[in-house]
Design a binder for these strands. Structure first.
Lengths: 237, 237
DNA sequence: AGCAATTAACCTGTCATACAAGTTTTACAA
DNA sequence: TTGTAAAACTTGTATGACAGGTTAATTGCT
Protein backbone atom coordinates (compact mmCIF):
# COMPACT_ATOMS: atom_id res chain seq x y z
CA UNK A 1 0.00 0.00 0.00
CA UNK A 2 2.23 2.80 -1.18
CA UNK A 3 0.04 5.60 0.03
CA UNK A 4 1.61 8.93 0.66
CA UNK A 5 0.11 11.90 2.38
CA UNK A 6 1.27 14.22 -0.30
CA UNK A 7 -1.14 17.04 0.38
CA UNK A 8 -0.58 18.58 3.78
CA UNK A 9 -1.57 22.21 3.56
CA UNK A 10 -4.10 23.75 5.88
CA UNK A 11 -5.75 20.57 7.11
CA UNK A 12 -4.62 18.44 10.01
CA UNK A 13 -2.68 15.21 9.84
CA UNK A 14 -5.57 13.26 11.26
CA UNK A 15 -8.08 14.28 8.61
CA UNK A 16 -5.54 13.59 5.92
CA UNK A 17 -5.03 10.16 7.37
CA UNK A 18 -8.77 9.58 7.38
CA UNK A 19 -8.69 10.34 3.69
CA UNK A 20 -5.83 7.96 3.06
CA UNK A 21 -7.60 5.14 4.86
CA UNK A 22 -10.84 5.56 2.93
CA UNK A 23 -8.74 5.68 -0.21
CA UNK A 24 -7.14 2.44 0.86
CA UNK A 25 -10.57 0.85 1.22
CA UNK A 26 -11.51 2.09 -2.22
CA UNK A 27 -8.27 1.12 -3.95
CA UNK A 28 -8.24 -2.38 -2.55
CA UNK A 29 -11.98 -2.78 -3.00
CA UNK A 30 -12.42 -3.83 0.58
CA UNK A 31 -15.87 -4.93 1.67
CA UNK A 32 -17.55 -5.40 5.05
CA UNK A 33 -15.48 -7.61 7.30
CA UNK A 34 -12.20 -7.10 5.48
CA UNK A 35 -9.27 -6.16 7.68
CA UNK A 36 -7.29 -2.95 7.54
CA UNK A 37 -3.57 -2.66 8.22
CA UNK A 38 -2.55 -2.33 11.83
CA UNK A 39 -2.04 1.06 13.39
CA UNK A 40 1.72 0.67 13.61
CA UNK A 41 2.00 -0.40 10.02
CA UNK A 42 -0.07 2.51 8.77
CA UNK A 43 1.84 4.92 10.97
CA UNK A 44 5.10 3.78 9.46
CA UNK A 45 3.84 3.91 5.90
CA UNK A 46 2.43 7.39 6.30
CA UNK A 47 5.27 8.70 8.41
CA UNK A 48 3.00 9.82 11.18
CA UNK A 49 2.75 8.80 14.80
CA UNK A 50 0.49 6.03 15.95
CA UNK A 51 -1.48 8.71 17.79
CA UNK A 52 -2.55 10.21 14.51
CA UNK A 53 -3.54 6.89 13.00
CA UNK A 54 -5.49 6.00 16.13
CA UNK A 55 -7.46 9.22 16.02
CA UNK A 56 -8.17 8.68 12.35
CA UNK A 57 -9.45 5.19 13.13
CA UNK A 58 -11.60 6.60 15.90
CA UNK A 59 -13.10 9.08 13.47
CA UNK A 60 -14.00 6.38 11.01
CA UNK A 61 -15.35 4.18 13.78
CA UNK A 62 -17.54 7.02 15.01
CA UNK A 63 -19.17 7.18 11.59
CA UNK A 64 -19.41 3.40 11.67
CA UNK A 65 -17.32 3.00 8.57
CA UNK A 66 -15.03 0.61 10.41
CA UNK A 67 -15.26 -1.53 13.52
CA UNK A 68 -12.67 -1.51 16.28
CA UNK A 69 -12.08 -4.17 18.89
CA UNK A 70 -9.25 -4.60 21.36
CA UNK A 71 -6.53 -6.85 20.08
CA UNK A 72 -8.08 -7.22 16.64
CA UNK A 73 -7.32 -5.27 13.53
CA UNK A 74 -9.88 -2.74 12.35
CA UNK A 75 -12.43 -4.13 9.90
CA UNK A 76 -14.64 -2.52 7.29
CA UNK A 77 -18.13 -2.15 8.75
CA UNK A 78 -21.64 -2.82 7.54
CA UNK A 79 -23.98 0.09 7.01
CA UNK A 80 -25.42 1.01 10.36
CA UNK A 81 -27.69 3.68 11.74
CA UNK A 82 -25.84 4.17 15.01
CA UNK A 83 -23.96 7.27 13.98
CA UNK A 84 -26.93 8.88 12.30
CA UNK A 85 -28.96 8.21 15.44
CA UNK A 86 -26.54 10.24 17.49
CA UNK A 87 -26.55 13.02 14.93
CA UNK A 88 -30.32 13.28 15.00
CA UNK A 89 -30.41 13.13 18.78
CA UNK A 90 -27.86 15.88 18.94
CA UNK A 91 -29.97 17.97 16.58
CA UNK A 92 -33.01 17.61 18.80
CA UNK A 93 -30.99 18.16 21.94
CA UNK A 94 -29.56 21.42 20.68
CA UNK A 95 -32.95 22.51 19.41
CA UNK A 96 -31.96 22.54 15.80
CA UNK A 97 -34.62 19.93 15.00
CA UNK A 98 -38.20 19.78 16.24
CA UNK A 99 -40.24 16.66 16.85
CA UNK A 100 -42.69 17.78 14.22
CA UNK A 101 -39.94 17.96 11.63
CA UNK A 102 -38.91 14.43 12.49
CA UNK A 103 -42.41 13.15 12.00
CA UNK A 104 -42.67 14.93 8.68
CA UNK A 105 -39.55 13.18 7.50
CA UNK A 106 -40.77 9.88 8.84
CA UNK A 107 -44.11 10.24 7.10
CA UNK A 108 -42.42 11.10 3.84
CA UNK A 109 -40.09 8.16 4.00
CA UNK A 110 -42.32 5.56 5.54
CA UNK A 111 -45.07 6.20 3.05
CA UNK A 112 -42.52 5.03 0.54
CA UNK A 113 -41.11 2.11 2.54
CA UNK A 114 -44.57 0.70 3.11
CA UNK A 115 -45.26 0.90 -0.60
CA UNK A 116 -42.03 -0.87 -1.46
CA UNK A 117 -42.50 -3.40 1.30
CA UNK A 118 -45.91 -4.28 -0.12
CA UNK A 119 -44.27 -5.03 -3.41
CA UNK A 120 -41.06 -6.67 -2.29
CA UNK A 121 -41.56 -8.28 1.11
CA UNK A 122 -40.90 -11.97 1.51
CA UNK A 123 -43.46 -14.14 3.26
CA UNK A 124 -41.26 -14.24 6.33
CA UNK A 125 -40.97 -10.48 6.43
CA UNK A 126 -44.72 -10.07 6.10
CA UNK A 127 -45.21 -12.44 9.01
CA UNK A 128 -42.62 -10.70 11.13
CA UNK A 129 -44.22 -7.33 10.49
CA UNK A 130 -47.63 -8.65 11.37
CA UNK A 131 -46.26 -10.33 14.47
CA UNK A 132 -45.10 -6.99 15.84
CA UNK A 133 -48.53 -5.49 15.25
CA UNK A 134 -50.16 -8.39 17.05
CA UNK A 135 -47.74 -8.12 19.94
CA UNK A 136 -48.73 -4.50 20.33
CA UNK A 137 -52.31 -5.60 20.71
CA UNK A 138 -51.43 -8.43 23.06
CA UNK A 139 -49.59 -6.23 25.54
CA UNK A 140 -51.66 -3.08 25.58
CA UNK A 141 -51.22 -2.78 29.31
CA UNK A 142 -47.45 -2.52 29.00
CA UNK A 143 -46.64 0.77 27.28
CA UNK A 144 -42.94 0.04 26.92
CA UNK A 145 -43.62 -3.22 25.18
CA UNK A 146 -46.13 -1.64 22.86
CA UNK A 147 -43.59 1.00 21.99
CA UNK A 148 -40.78 -1.43 21.25
CA UNK A 149 -42.99 -3.48 18.96
CA UNK A 150 -44.23 -0.30 17.34
CA UNK A 151 -40.68 0.81 16.58
CA UNK A 152 -39.70 -2.65 15.42
CA UNK A 153 -42.77 -2.76 13.19
CA UNK A 154 -41.71 0.38 11.37
CA UNK A 155 -38.10 -0.73 11.10
CA UNK A 156 -39.04 -4.13 9.71
CA UNK A 157 -41.09 -2.43 7.03
CA UNK A 158 -38.12 -0.28 6.13
CA UNK A 159 -35.92 -3.35 5.87
CA UNK A 160 -38.50 -5.09 3.72
CA UNK A 161 -38.31 -2.16 1.31
CA UNK A 162 -34.94 -3.63 0.38
CA UNK A 163 -33.30 -0.24 0.38
CA UNK A 164 -30.67 -0.01 3.12
CA UNK A 165 -30.77 3.78 3.08
CA UNK A 166 -34.39 3.77 4.11
CA UNK A 167 -33.60 1.25 6.82
CA UNK A 168 -30.76 3.43 8.02
CA UNK A 169 -32.86 6.57 8.18
CA UNK A 170 -35.82 4.92 9.87
CA UNK A 171 -33.45 3.26 12.31
CA UNK A 172 -31.81 6.57 13.03
CA UNK A 173 -35.10 8.00 14.26
CA UNK A 174 -35.72 5.24 16.76
CA UNK A 175 -33.75 6.93 19.51
CA UNK A 176 -35.63 10.19 19.44
CA UNK A 177 -38.92 8.47 18.77
CA UNK A 178 -38.55 6.65 22.06
CA UNK A 179 -38.73 10.01 23.75
CA UNK A 180 -41.83 11.34 22.02
CA UNK A 181 -43.73 8.07 21.78
CA UNK A 182 -44.88 7.95 25.41
CA UNK A 183 -46.33 11.43 25.01
CA UNK A 184 -48.47 10.25 22.16
CA UNK A 185 -49.52 7.17 24.07
CA UNK A 186 -50.52 9.09 27.16
CA UNK A 187 -52.42 11.59 25.07
CA UNK A 188 -54.59 8.82 23.72
CA UNK A 189 -56.50 8.64 26.94
CA UNK A 190 -59.46 6.63 25.68
CA UNK A 191 -59.02 2.89 25.44
CA UNK A 192 -60.69 3.17 22.07
CA UNK A 193 -58.11 5.56 20.68
CA UNK A 194 -55.31 3.21 21.62
CA UNK A 195 -57.13 0.30 20.09
CA UNK A 196 -57.67 2.25 16.90
CA UNK A 197 -54.00 3.15 16.71
CA UNK A 198 -52.96 -0.45 17.10
CA UNK A 199 -55.64 -1.63 14.70
CA UNK A 200 -54.13 0.67 12.09
CA UNK A 201 -50.83 -1.14 12.50
CA UNK A 202 -52.57 -4.48 11.99
CA UNK A 203 -54.33 -3.15 8.92
CA UNK A 204 -51.04 -1.92 7.49
CA UNK A 205 -49.50 -5.32 8.12
CA UNK A 206 -52.41 -6.96 6.34
CA UNK A 207 -52.12 -4.64 3.37
CA UNK A 208 -48.42 -5.45 3.12
CA UNK A 209 -49.11 -9.16 3.36
CA UNK A 210 -51.80 -8.81 0.72
CA UNK A 211 -49.42 -6.93 -1.54
CA UNK A 212 -51.63 -3.88 -1.70
CA UNK A 213 -49.30 -0.86 -1.87
CA UNK A 214 -52.06 1.70 -2.39
CA UNK A 215 -53.96 0.66 0.66
CA UNK A 216 -50.78 0.25 2.71
CA UNK A 217 -49.45 3.69 1.91
CA UNK A 218 -52.83 5.28 2.45
CA UNK A 219 -53.06 3.74 5.89
CA UNK A 220 -49.51 4.76 6.73
CA UNK A 221 -50.13 8.35 5.73
CA UNK A 222 -53.28 8.41 7.82
CA UNK A 223 -51.40 6.89 10.73
CA UNK A 224 -48.78 9.61 10.64
CA UNK A 225 -51.29 12.36 10.13
CA UNK A 226 -53.05 11.15 13.24
CA UNK A 227 -49.85 10.76 15.27
CA UNK A 228 -48.65 14.22 14.36
CA UNK A 229 -52.00 15.66 15.27
CA UNK A 230 -51.96 13.92 18.64
CA UNK A 231 -48.47 15.16 19.41
CA UNK A 232 -49.31 18.70 18.40
CA UNK A 233 -52.45 18.64 20.54
CA UNK A 234 -50.24 17.47 23.40
CA UNK A 235 -48.28 20.67 23.00
CA UNK A 236 -45.17 19.46 21.25
CA UNK A 237 -43.53 21.75 18.79
CA UNK B 1 -19.47 19.60 36.09
CA UNK B 2 -19.38 16.75 38.56
CA UNK B 3 -19.62 14.00 36.01
CA UNK B 4 -18.37 10.61 36.95
CA UNK B 5 -17.85 7.66 34.69
CA UNK B 6 -19.60 5.36 37.10
CA UNK B 7 -20.38 2.59 34.64
CA UNK B 8 -17.29 0.97 33.26
CA UNK B 9 -18.19 -2.60 32.42
CA UNK B 10 -17.68 -4.09 29.01
CA UNK B 11 -17.41 -0.88 27.03
CA UNK B 12 -14.24 1.13 26.47
CA UNK B 13 -13.23 4.27 28.28
CA UNK B 14 -13.47 6.30 25.13
CA UNK B 15 -17.09 5.44 24.39
CA UNK B 16 -17.99 6.10 27.99
CA UNK B 17 -16.35 9.46 27.72
CA UNK B 18 -18.29 10.20 24.57
CA UNK B 19 -21.43 9.52 26.57
CA UNK B 20 -20.34 11.81 29.38
CA UNK B 21 -19.64 14.64 26.98
CA UNK B 22 -23.01 14.39 25.23
CA UNK B 23 -24.57 14.27 28.68
CA UNK B 24 -22.68 17.42 29.53
CA UNK B 25 -24.12 19.13 26.48
CA UNK B 26 -27.59 18.02 27.46
CA UNK B 27 -27.31 18.91 31.14
CA UNK B 28 -25.96 22.36 30.50
CA UNK B 29 -28.29 22.92 27.57
CA UNK B 30 -25.43 23.91 25.33
CA UNK B 31 -26.29 25.13 21.86
CA UNK B 32 -24.29 25.56 18.66
CA UNK B 33 -21.20 27.64 19.26
CA UNK B 34 -21.03 27.04 23.01
CA UNK B 35 -17.67 25.91 24.29
CA UNK B 36 -16.87 22.63 25.99
CA UNK B 37 -14.35 22.19 28.77
CA UNK B 38 -10.75 21.75 27.72
CA UNK B 39 -9.30 18.29 27.24
CA UNK B 40 -7.09 18.55 30.31
CA UNK B 41 -9.95 19.66 32.49
CA UNK B 42 -12.23 16.88 31.33
CA UNK B 43 -9.46 14.35 31.73
CA UNK B 44 -8.94 15.39 35.32
CA UNK B 45 -12.63 15.38 36.14
CA UNK B 46 -13.18 11.95 34.67
CA UNK B 47 -9.93 10.51 35.93
CA UNK B 48 -8.83 9.41 32.51
CA UNK B 49 -5.86 10.35 30.39
CA UNK B 50 -5.99 13.18 27.94
CA UNK B 51 -5.59 10.58 25.20
CA UNK B 52 -9.00 9.16 26.03
CA UNK B 53 -10.67 12.55 26.05
CA UNK B 54 -9.02 13.43 22.78
CA UNK B 55 -10.27 10.30 21.09
CA UNK B 56 -13.73 10.95 22.45
CA UNK B 57 -13.60 14.47 21.02
CA UNK B 58 -12.46 13.08 17.69
CA UNK B 59 -15.41 10.72 17.66
CA UNK B 60 -17.86 13.51 18.26
CA UNK B 61 -16.13 15.69 15.70
CA UNK B 62 -16.36 12.91 13.13
CA UNK B 63 -20.13 12.91 13.56
CA UNK B 64 -20.01 16.70 13.39
CA UNK B 65 -21.54 17.09 16.81
CA UNK B 66 -18.67 19.33 17.83
CA UNK B 67 -16.05 21.39 16.02
CA UNK B 68 -12.35 21.21 16.76
CA UNK B 69 -9.70 23.76 15.93
CA UNK B 70 -6.11 24.03 17.02
CA UNK B 71 -5.67 26.23 20.05
CA UNK B 72 -9.40 26.72 20.55
CA UNK B 73 -11.70 24.81 22.80
CA UNK B 74 -14.17 22.42 21.23
CA UNK B 75 -17.53 23.97 20.41
CA UNK B 76 -20.97 22.53 19.87
CA UNK B 77 -21.59 22.26 16.15
CA UNK B 78 -24.41 23.10 13.82
CA UNK B 79 -26.22 20.32 12.05
CA UNK B 80 -24.16 19.38 9.05
CA UNK B 81 -24.28 16.78 6.31
CA UNK B 82 -20.55 16.11 6.17
CA UNK B 83 -20.59 12.97 8.25
CA UNK B 84 -23.65 11.54 6.55
CA UNK B 85 -22.01 12.22 3.19
CA UNK B 86 -19.09 10.03 4.13
CA UNK B 87 -21.39 7.31 5.41
CA UNK B 88 -23.31 7.22 2.15
CA UNK B 89 -20.16 7.28 0.09
CA UNK B 90 -18.80 4.42 2.11
CA UNK B 91 -22.00 2.48 1.50
CA UNK B 92 -21.69 2.93 -2.24
CA UNK B 93 -17.99 2.22 -2.20
CA UNK B 94 -18.45 -1.08 -0.41
CA UNK B 95 -21.37 -1.97 -2.63
CA UNK B 96 -23.92 -1.95 0.10
CA UNK B 97 -25.86 0.79 -1.67
CA UNK B 98 -26.68 1.09 -5.36
CA UNK B 99 -27.09 4.28 -7.33
CA UNK B 100 -30.66 3.35 -8.07
CA UNK B 101 -31.45 3.11 -4.39
CA UNK B 102 -30.02 6.55 -3.86
CA UNK B 103 -32.19 8.02 -6.55
CA UNK B 104 -35.24 6.35 -5.09
CA UNK B 105 -34.53 7.97 -1.75
CA UNK B 106 -33.89 11.29 -3.41
CA UNK B 107 -37.13 11.14 -5.37
CA UNK B 108 -39.05 10.28 -2.24
CA UNK B 109 -37.55 13.11 -0.25
CA UNK B 110 -37.30 15.76 -2.90
CA UNK B 111 -40.89 15.33 -3.95
CA UNK B 112 -41.63 16.44 -0.43
CA UNK B 113 -39.05 19.23 -0.20
CA UNK B 114 -40.28 20.79 -3.39
CA UNK B 115 -43.83 20.73 -2.05
CA UNK B 116 -42.79 22.34 1.19
CA UNK B 117 -40.56 24.83 -0.58
CA UNK B 118 -43.49 25.90 -2.72
CA UNK B 119 -45.42 26.67 0.43
CA UNK B 120 -42.72 28.14 2.60
CA UNK B 121 -40.02 29.67 0.43
CA UNK B 122 -39.14 33.30 0.90
CA UNK B 123 -38.88 35.53 -2.15
CA UNK B 124 -35.12 35.46 -1.88
CA UNK B 125 -35.06 31.70 -1.77
CA UNK B 126 -37.31 31.46 -4.81
CA UNK B 127 -34.98 33.77 -6.69
CA UNK B 128 -31.91 31.87 -5.64
CA UNK B 129 -33.44 28.58 -6.76
CA UNK B 130 -34.40 30.05 -10.09
CA UNK B 131 -30.98 31.57 -10.50
CA UNK B 132 -29.37 28.15 -10.32
CA UNK B 133 -31.74 26.83 -12.98
CA UNK B 134 -30.90 29.77 -15.24
CA UNK B 135 -27.20 29.30 -14.69
CA UNK B 136 -27.55 25.71 -15.83
CA UNK B 137 -29.05 26.98 -19.04
CA UNK B 138 -26.46 29.69 -19.47
CA UNK B 139 -23.48 27.34 -19.25
CA UNK B 140 -24.70 24.30 -21.12
CA UNK B 141 -21.28 23.87 -22.70
CA UNK B 142 -19.60 23.44 -19.34
CA UNK B 143 -20.79 20.17 -17.84
CA UNK B 144 -19.15 20.73 -14.48
CA UNK B 145 -20.81 24.06 -14.07
CA UNK B 146 -24.18 22.67 -15.03
CA UNK B 147 -23.73 19.94 -12.46
CA UNK B 148 -22.78 22.26 -9.64
CA UNK B 149 -25.79 24.47 -10.26
CA UNK B 150 -27.96 21.38 -10.55
CA UNK B 151 -26.80 20.14 -7.15
CA UNK B 152 -27.11 23.58 -5.61
CA UNK B 153 -30.60 23.88 -7.07
CA UNK B 154 -31.76 20.76 -5.29
CA UNK B 155 -30.04 21.70 -2.04
CA UNK B 156 -31.57 25.17 -2.03
CA UNK B 157 -34.99 23.64 -2.42
CA UNK B 158 -34.31 21.37 0.54
CA UNK B 159 -33.24 24.34 2.60
CA UNK B 160 -36.34 26.26 1.57
CA UNK B 161 -38.43 23.40 2.94
CA UNK B 162 -37.38 24.74 6.33
CA UNK B 163 -36.70 21.28 7.63
CA UNK B 164 -33.00 20.84 8.43
CA UNK B 165 -33.27 17.06 8.28
CA UNK B 166 -34.29 17.21 4.64
CA UNK B 167 -31.43 19.60 3.95
CA UNK B 168 -29.03 17.26 5.68
CA UNK B 169 -30.15 14.22 3.73
CA UNK B 170 -30.18 15.97 0.37
CA UNK B 171 -26.79 17.44 1.15
CA UNK B 172 -25.48 14.03 2.08
CA UNK B 173 -26.22 12.74 -1.40
CA UNK B 174 -24.28 15.46 -3.16
CA UNK B 175 -21.00 13.61 -2.97
CA UNK B 176 -22.18 10.44 -4.62
CA UNK B 177 -24.38 12.34 -7.02
CA UNK B 178 -21.29 14.05 -8.38
CA UNK B 179 -20.12 10.66 -9.54
CA UNK B 180 -23.27 9.53 -11.28
CA UNK B 181 -24.32 12.88 -12.68
CA UNK B 182 -21.81 12.96 -15.56
CA UNK B 183 -23.07 9.57 -16.68
CA UNK B 184 -26.58 10.91 -16.97
CA UNK B 185 -25.34 13.98 -18.78
CA UNK B 186 -23.33 12.04 -21.32
CA UNK B 187 -26.23 9.68 -21.92
CA UNK B 188 -28.38 12.60 -22.95
CA UNK B 189 -26.61 12.79 -26.27
CA UNK B 190 -29.14 14.98 -28.08
CA UNK B 191 -28.93 18.68 -27.47
CA UNK B 192 -32.68 18.59 -27.15
CA UNK B 193 -32.63 16.11 -24.28
CA UNK B 194 -30.28 18.29 -22.32
CA UNK B 195 -32.39 21.32 -23.00
CA UNK B 196 -35.48 19.49 -21.84
CA UNK B 197 -33.77 18.44 -18.65
CA UNK B 198 -32.72 21.97 -17.86
CA UNK B 199 -36.09 23.34 -18.84
CA UNK B 200 -37.64 21.04 -16.25
CA UNK B 201 -35.48 22.69 -13.62
CA UNK B 202 -36.66 26.09 -14.72
CA UNK B 203 -40.26 24.94 -14.66
CA UNK B 204 -39.81 23.60 -11.15
CA UNK B 205 -38.32 26.91 -10.07
CA UNK B 206 -41.27 28.73 -11.58
CA UNK B 207 -43.75 26.47 -9.84
CA UNK B 208 -42.01 27.12 -6.53
CA UNK B 209 -41.98 30.85 -7.14
CA UNK B 210 -45.66 30.70 -8.07
CA UNK B 211 -46.42 28.78 -4.90
CA UNK B 212 -47.86 25.84 -6.77
CA UNK B 213 -46.93 22.72 -4.78
CA UNK B 214 -48.95 20.31 -6.92
CA UNK B 215 -47.26 21.35 -10.10
CA UNK B 216 -43.85 21.56 -8.47
CA UNK B 217 -44.00 18.07 -7.00
CA UNK B 218 -45.39 16.62 -10.21
CA UNK B 219 -42.50 18.09 -12.17
CA UNK B 220 -39.97 16.89 -9.62
CA UNK B 221 -41.33 13.35 -9.72
CA UNK B 222 -41.19 13.39 -13.50
CA UNK B 223 -37.65 14.74 -13.38
CA UNK B 224 -36.50 11.89 -11.16
CA UNK B 225 -38.38 9.28 -13.13
CA UNK B 226 -36.58 10.49 -16.20
CA UNK B 227 -33.18 10.68 -14.54
CA UNK B 228 -33.47 7.19 -13.11
CA UNK B 229 -34.53 5.88 -16.50
CA UNK B 230 -31.55 7.52 -18.18
CA UNK B 231 -29.13 6.10 -15.64
CA UNK B 232 -30.61 2.63 -15.94
CA UNK B 233 -30.42 2.80 -19.72
CA UNK B 234 -26.77 3.75 -19.30
CA UNK B 235 -26.23 0.48 -17.52
CA UNK B 236 -26.04 1.59 -13.90
CA UNK B 237 -27.38 -0.74 -11.29
C1' DA C 1 1.63 -37.22 9.38
C1' DG C 2 -2.10 -35.08 11.78
C1' DC C 3 -3.92 -32.76 15.60
C1' DA C 4 -4.03 -30.43 20.07
C1' DA C 5 -1.98 -27.51 23.27
C1' DT C 6 1.28 -24.17 24.44
C1' DT C 7 4.11 -20.37 23.24
C1' DA C 8 5.46 -16.48 20.72
C1' DA C 9 4.28 -12.58 17.97
C1' DC C 10 1.11 -9.17 17.08
C1' DC C 11 -2.27 -5.71 18.08
C1' DT C 12 -5.22 -2.46 20.48
C1' DG C 13 -6.48 0.41 24.80
C1' DT C 14 -4.70 3.43 28.02
C1' DC C 15 -1.32 6.24 30.41
C1' DA C 16 2.49 9.72 30.98
C1' DT C 17 5.38 13.18 29.17
C1' DA C 18 7.03 16.56 26.02
C1' DC C 19 6.95 20.36 22.90
C1' DA C 20 5.50 23.36 18.95
C1' DA C 21 2.07 26.37 17.41
C1' DG C 22 -2.38 28.72 17.83
C1' DT C 23 -5.74 31.39 21.00
C1' DT C 24 -7.44 33.76 24.92
C1' DT C 25 -6.78 36.35 28.91
C1' DT C 26 -4.15 39.34 31.71
C1' DA C 27 -1.16 43.03 32.60
C1' DC C 28 0.87 46.95 31.42
C1' DA C 29 1.87 51.21 29.15
C1' DA C 30 0.55 55.34 26.71
C1' DT D 1 -9.61 54.22 28.02
C1' DT D 2 -7.52 51.83 24.76
C1' DG D 3 -3.91 49.44 22.39
C1' DT D 4 -0.22 46.29 22.85
C1' DA D 5 2.81 42.94 24.85
C1' DA D 6 3.29 39.15 27.84
C1' DA D 7 1.52 35.29 30.21
C1' DA D 8 -1.52 31.46 30.54
C1' DC D 9 -4.06 28.25 28.30
C1' DT D 10 -5.17 24.91 24.63
C1' DT D 11 -4.84 21.85 20.87
C1' DG D 12 -1.91 18.88 17.46
C1' DT D 13 1.59 15.61 17.21
C1' DA D 14 5.36 12.51 18.71
C1' DT D 15 7.56 9.01 21.72
C1' DG D 16 7.75 5.40 24.87
C1' DA D 17 5.64 2.08 27.90
C1' DC D 18 2.75 -1.67 29.40
C1' DA D 19 -1.56 -4.53 30.25
C1' DG D 20 -4.62 -7.41 28.16
C1' DG D 21 -6.83 -9.49 24.09
C1' DT D 22 -6.06 -12.05 19.46
C1' DT D 23 -3.72 -14.52 15.95
C1' DA D 24 -0.04 -17.20 14.20
C1' DA D 25 3.66 -20.38 15.03
C1' DT D 26 5.76 -23.97 17.36
C1' DT D 27 6.03 -27.81 19.87
C1' DG D 28 4.74 -32.23 21.54
C1' DC D 29 1.84 -36.15 21.50
C1' DT D 30 -0.47 -39.87 19.20
Amino acid sequence: MPHQASDNTGTTLVSETVGVITQHIRNNELGPGDRLPSETKLAKELNVSRTVVREAFRSLAAMRLINLKAGKRATVANLDHGAMSLMIEHGVLTEQISVQQIYDVRRTIETRTVTLASLRRSKTEAQEIRRHAMQMQAHMDDADRVMEHDLAFHLEIAKASRNPIFAMIVGAFQGVSRQSWPIGWRSRTEEEQRHAMIQTHINIADAIAAGDPQRASMLMTAHFDDSIKVLLDAGLS
